[in-house]
Design a protein around this nucleic acid. Structure first.
Length: 357
DNA sequence: TCTGGGGTCCTAGGACCC
DNA sequence: TCTGGGGTCCTAGGACCC
């Protein structure tokens, strides 16, 4: 049984949020731009969402506390995250990309996988197609992207990250293992900080180290994930490019500007979040069964409480009442709250529900 | 460094049913 | 009073993605 030959393209927009902002504001040209939380003169909470290349030269990076970014680069232009705008631009780009692919999968707001197996005869044609895609995006949106081409999603994604910005990297199937070997394990999908640390403790730093390791021992240490890790290290990934199915949950949460023990204020915030979630639920024509409340205390300890209702609903009052009930346990006189959130899940589409009743 | 917000998937224990 | 096995659902927490 041989693996089906595929050609997969991964498109990754370059520093998407700041790129869109720079396009909208030509006066930002040549300046460091940072999109994220309000820095508040270095006292702000929250993190950097995206930063452009100019600000990266100061050591700023995405995910970094905004207070630290302020210390590194106070002269940068700081902007709030304008999701509405980025989503609009994203939708235009995704519609553009979709038509190039047999199978298409959006990944986050600014990335996509395209299975182009039947559209091209080989890697040379795939490269030409990739250039065409880059041109079209630039012509229509004035934005650049980096593209990776490989025989599966994993290799294509890592390849797109290899040369940035405005890059194009092709990794043929027969070169995949060699291409991956020198990279740090952190570059692999699903290897975050924790897994990286655990692997390091086992003496595994690069993808090559991982590929040479005993797969049985990896399975013992990581369970199902261990087998997956080993296969990835060998450049093997059989997962299909597939359009995202329906949403599984809808949530809103918010970090307070200051940690609070004003529990009435927390309840008010919770109601506001419930209203936003409810609005989304109605817009998407859904009914839910499960409500989850999230609380983060000032020491960052985070808890969730959930309740599955004995009935299906889309009513705001059911959501608010359940959420208010769940959050009560977390109100302790000696514990200040940093974040509160609400989520609904266990959906049944309104249409399906109609059939049931 | 002092840690956002919106998601998905996995694990593990316990309840409950047959 | 002690004892099964399988299946499904629920809950809480955690790792990871962008």
């Amino acid at each position: 049984m041989s693996e089906k030959k595929r050609i997969i393209i991964h498109v990754d927009m370059d520093h998407f949020f700041t790129a869109v902002e720079e396009r909208e504001h030509p006066e930002f040209k040549g300046k460091p731009v940072i999109v994220g939380a309000d820095p508040k003169e270095g006292k702000g909470r929250g993190v950097v969402s995206t930063c452009n290349y100019k600000s990266r030269k100061f050591g700023v990076g995405s995910g970094m506390p905004i207070s630290r970014a302020w210390k590194l680069c106070p002269e940068a232009i700081y902007l709030p995250v304008n999701y509405e705008l980025y989503t609009k631009v994203s939708n235009e780009i995704m519609d553009m990309l979709r038509k190039y692919a047999d199978k298409f999968e959006q990944w986050g707001i600014d990335e996509a996988f395209l299975d182009v197996t039947s559209k091209v005869k080989g890697y040379a044609e795939a490269e030409a197609l990739a250039r065409q895609i880059k041109n079209e995006i630039y012509e229509k949106e004035r934005l650049t992207c980096s593209i990776g081409i490989g025989s599966n999603k994993l290799v294509a994604k890592i390849a797109s990250d290899f040369q940035k910005p405005d890059g194009l990297t092709i990794v043929k199937k027969e070169n995949a293992e060699k291409f991956l070997a020198p990279l740090p394990v952190r570059k692999l999908l699903w290897v975050g900080r924790k897994t990286e640390q655990k692997l390091k403790a086992m003496g595994i730093k690069t993808v090559g180290d991982l590929a040479r390791y005993d797969p049985t021992m990896l399975a013992e240490a990581f369970g199902v994930m261990g087998t997956q890790l080993y296969l990835m290290a060998r450049g093997i990934d059989k997962s299909e490019v597939q359009e995202r199915s329906e949403v599984k949950s809808i949530s809103r949460d918010v970090t307070f500007e200051e940690d609070t023990d004003d529990f009435d204020a927390v309840l008010n915030t919770l109601d506001r979040l419930s209203e936003k979630v409810h609005k989304d639920v109605l817009e998407q024509n859904l009914c839910f069964k499960t409500v989850t409340v999230k609380v983060r205390y000032e020491n960052f300890e985070t808890h969730t409480h959930s309740k599955t209702l004995p009935f299906i609903t889309n009513r705001l009052q059911d959501l608010e009442k359940t959420a208010r009930g769940l959050v009560q346990d977390y109100f302790k006189p000696y514990r200040k709250i940093r974040l509160v959130g609400v989520r609904v899940s266990n959906f049944v589409s309104a249409e399906k529900q109609k059939k049931l009743t």
